[in-house]
């Protein structure tokens, strides 16, 4: 209580008190996030200056609308702090990836379908014959081995 009285008396006697005594109208600062980015440059800087002046008094005395506006200008999601993805983007990326993967699968299956027949060597009898020959040639004499797959 005493502190507030004290603060008021200081403000009354200071130069700042005379430049920003009145709260900015609600119509001026309300719902700023909805229209901030479409505001012309001149209006933006005027608003910033007005709020700057207002913020020279005790911040506790700002109206909720002013506080919100000031916070939004300094830390809100606009300009460099605009979110990387808008809400629709994530599903777009997801479905793009899905379509890409599906296309890959289609190409793979298509190639498999129209590909030539397997090589004549790709069967068990052939591999067993290979084993026989290579074993007769001492291939891997220490641990033995097999071509069969």
């Amino acid at each position: 209580m005493l502190r507030q009285t004290f603060a008021r008396s200081i403000r009354f006697n200071s130069t700042v008190a005379k430049t920003a005594p009145r709260a900015l109208s609600n119509a001026y600062v309300n719902q700023l996030e909805a229209r901030w980015e479409t505001l012309p440059q001149a209006d933006q800087s005027a608003l910033i200056n007005d709020l700057k002046e207002r913020m020279k008094i005790s911040w506790g005395e700002l109206t909720p609308a002013e506080k919100k506006a000031a916070y939004y200008i300094s830390y809100g999601e606009w300009g460099p702090r605009a979110p990387l993805y808008s809400p629709g983007d994530k599903s777009k990326v997801f479905w793009g990836t899905m379509i890409g993967m599906f296309a890959g699968l289609v190409i793979f299956v298509g190639l498999k379908t129209f590909a030539g027949s397997k090589s004549v060597t790709m069967n068990r009898e052939w591999h067993e014959k290979s084993d026989e020959y290579l074993k007769s040639q001492n291939a891997n004499p220490f641990t033995g081995y097999s071509q069969v797959q």
Binding site: L134, N138, A139, N140, F142, T143, Y145, Q147, Q149
Partner: peptide
């Protein structure tokens, strides 16, 4: 471990010396 004189299915590491 697979040691081979010839490449073989799923062979890893070096061939037999």
């Amino acid at each position: 471990m697979t040691w081979l004189d010839v490449p073989a299915p799923w062979a890893m590491r070096l061939q037999d010396a």
